[in-house]
C-alpha cells in the first residue's frame, strides 16, 4: 500500500474533505483531523503515532503528525494548518497514548492548545512561564537570534 492508496481511501471515506497531497504529506483541515485520524488508526492500521511537532510559518502554524503502520511499513505525514488567531487542534490521545506527551511538548514550545487533552501542562519549561520558545517571534533579552549568514562571524 502506498501513500496514493491511502489518499484514495480517505477520499472515498470523506468525500467532502479537501486534502492536498504534498510530495510526502497529507494536508487536512483543522476541523476534520480527529475523524481522519480515527479512520487511519482503526481501519488503516496506523497503530503508531511516531512524532507530533509543529512548524511556525510566521503567518500560520503547521501541526505535523508522523503516523506509522508497522504491518504496512508505511509512514504517513499529516499536516494541519492552524491560524494564529485560533491555535487549537483536537487532541489525538484517544487513539494514540503516545500523543499525550508529544502534544504537551508542542503546547509547551509553540503554545498550540490541544482540545480535550487529559493533562495539558507544560512539560519542559517551568509551569509559570508564559513564553513559547520555538516560535519565530520569541524574544528575550539574553537570546538574540543569529543572523542568517554563512555561519561565520558578522
Amino acid at each position: 500500500m502506498q501513500i496514493n492508496d491511502i489518499l484514495q481511501k480517505i477520499k472515498e471515506k470523506f468525500p467532502s474533505l479537501e486534502t492536498v497531497a504534498l510530495p510526502n504529506a497529507l494536508v487536512i483541515p483543522q476541523s476534520s483531523l480527529f475523524e481522519v485520524a480515527g479512520f487511519l488508526k482503526n481501519e488503516m492500521d496506523f497503530e503508531n503515532c511516531h512524532c507530533i511537532t509543529a512548524v511556525d510559518r510566521k503567518d500560520k502554524m503547521e501541526v505535523v503528525y508522523h503516523l506509522y503502520s508497522t504491518c504496512n511499513r508505511l509512514m504517513l505525514t499529516l499536516k494541519t494548518i492552524v491560524e494564529l488567531n485560533d491555535l487549537t487542534v483536537e487532541s489525538l490521545t484517544p487513539f494514540w497514548k503516545s500523543a499525550n506527551w508529544l502534544e504537551r511538548e508542542v503546547y509547551d514550545l509553540f503554545g498550540i492548545k490541544f482540545l480535550n487533552h487529559p493533562d495539558l501542562r507544560r512539560i519542559m519549561n517551568p509551569d509559570d512561564w508564559t513564553d513559547f520558545p520555538l516560535r519565530k517571534d520569541f524574544k528575550r533579552l539574553d537570546f538574540i537570534p543569529r543572523p542568517q549568514t554563512m555561519g561565520l562571524k558578522g
Partner: peptide, 28 residues
C-alpha cells in the same frame, strides 16, 4: 528510533529541526 524532521526554507540554517527522541516515548 531516533527521528530527525528537518524543514528547510532556502536559508543556510534549518528552518525547523524536530528531534524525535526514543527515550521520550519510552519514558512516557
Amino acid at each position: 528510533e531516533l527521528g530527525f524532521y528537518i524543514v528547510a526554507e532556502g536559508g543556510f540554517n534549518p528552518y525547523r529541526c524536530k528531534i524525535r527522541s526514543p527515550s521520550f516515548s519510552n519514558l512516557a
